[in-house]
Amino acid sequence: MAKPKLKAHVIDREWCKGCGICVHFCPKDVLELDEEDKVIAARREDCICCKMCELRCPDLAIEIETE
């Protein structure tokens, strides 16, 4: 299977509660909480599209779109 190619981190800022689970468990340290305690993809080029953030988000607030 070909390596998935990242299209975008789709983040719903209304739904994100800033719990930090995705930030903590990201294996490549891609995600961060911003000054409003909402998740942002600070280092998107390091993303390997493992989708662990998407699967563990309690708020269904982050989705990894791949090509």
């Binding site: 209304e14 739904w15 509660k17 800033g18 719990c19 930090g20 689970i21 699967l55 563990r56 988000c57 309690p58 708020d59 269904l60 607030a61």
Partner: peptide
Amino acid sequence: IKGYIRERFFPHIWCPGCGHGIVLNS
């Protein structure tokens, strides 16, 4: 999976980091 939820009730009432949201997700 968003096709299976009632989006009008989101964000849900569970606290930040509540495991129940992850159960819902799974």
